[in-house]
Amino acid sequence: MTTTRASYTDAETRMTRARAQRLGVNRSRDPVEVVRDLVGVQAQDMPSARLALRPRTIGVTAADVRKCHDEDRTLVRIWAMRGTLHMVAAEDVGWLVGLLGPVFAAADQRRRDQLGLDDDLLDKAMPAVRGILGRHGPLTRADLVERLDAHRVRLDLKTQGPAHLVGYAAMTGLVCRGPDVEKGEPTYVLVEDWIGKQRTLEGDGALAELTRRYVASRGPVTPDDFKRWTGLPARQARHGFALVAEQLTEVETVSGTAFVLKGTTRRRPRREPAVELVGMFDEYLLGYANRDLVLDPRFAKRIQTGGFVKPAVLLDGRVVGTWSQKRTAGKVTITVEPFEDLTEVGPRLAGVVRDVGRFLETNSELRMGEPQ
């Protein structure tokens, strides 16, 4: 008997993905639960990483998220997907680094060699890093480099050498980010000291876990989406889908065949359009091979400038503008630069702006620019 695949319109694909990411629906009171479900949140800019949890949680503030990271140690920043800094649940650190770390450590070898970080230096540096952070951590990068000098590991802070050394230590499972200090400067700690013994998953077990959770949190998706999001080679990405094939359902989208986790309910747009503000580097824009489904190509350069993916205004899952914030004493001003007329959803947008203020624990004000 032939089974007919569910057919998703573009609007239904957007809404199903938004629900999978807990954007405005299915919110949680637990920020750790949300990060665990998403696998990770890009965190090269920590205020934006915290802000990513606002539209996905209820009653949570930026201070709550900071506490999870700096005090409770239930959220941890490591180099994971795409070799980029991510905030992940502490329980996921070990197996994620074990799966992804070797891929990106190998990819970075040429650059390390150019910086003088050859295997001999690394063999000397890693035990030194372990000893220094074990006795004195958390330490800033500058403090760590200063102490390494006594171990005959000499690095120039004016070069990228220290960053790549720390990156290698992180990708081999030795270190992770600790609490930020003054002006958001990061510190580094030993993983084993900061969060203790880690859950281990080997080989295909780790790849299957990552694939299943990726599909669950972002579907409908394709192996190519998974490849782009993880940074894994195409062959390994396809193998991940093969490992969990029995847990997936094929669906037809306008762009072709994609996959959702079995039991996923197709979501249709609401009668009243859903309005949301997502921050810089949000997973809704980073989680797929391209953004054509959610972003008119005419506006692509207004969303991404160089390596920065700007904060976006979403209307039923479509990007319809950018936004920025300016903090002053006792207030945050949210300025929206729309791509189209948003007059009809103005009251709902104002409500979202008030929620940004609640999350940041300050008053908030909306300023609306003219469509361009």
Rank of each mutant, 00 (worst) to 15 (best):
R110N: 06
R111M: 12
R112F: 00
R112C: 03
R112K: 05
D113C: 02
Q114M: 09
Q114Y: 02
L115D: 04
G116M: 06
G116C: 08
G116D: 08
L117T: 03
D118K: 09
D118Q: 11
D118L: 04
D119T: 15
D120M: 04
D120T: 14
L121T: 03
L122M: 14
L122N: 03
D123I: 03
K124T: 11
K124G: 02
K124F: 01
M126P: 03
P127S: 12
A128P: 03
A128S: 13
V129L: 14
R130Y: 09
I132T: 02
I132W: 02
I132A: 02
G134A: 07
G134L: 04
R135D: 14
H136N: 07
G137H: 07
G137T: 08
G137S: 10
P138S: 04
P138W: 00
P138F: 03
P138L: 00
T140Q: 11
T140S: 14
R141S: 13
A142H: 11
A142L: 10
A142G: 09
A142S: 15
A142E: 15
D143I: 00
V145P: 01
V145E: 08
E146A: 15
E146M: 11
R147Q: 13
R147G: 06
L148Y: 09
D149R: 15
H151T: 02
R152Q: 15
V153I: 12
V153N: 06
R154H: 13
L155I: 08
L157C: 09
L157H: 11
K158C: 06
Q160V: 02
A163E: 10
A163K: 08
L165S: 01
L165P: 03
V166C: 03
G167W: 12
Y168C: 08
A169F: 01
A169I: 02
M171I: 00
T172F: 01
G173K: 01
L174Q: 05
V175N: 02
C176T: 13
R177F: 14
G178M: 00
G178Q: 01
G178T: 03
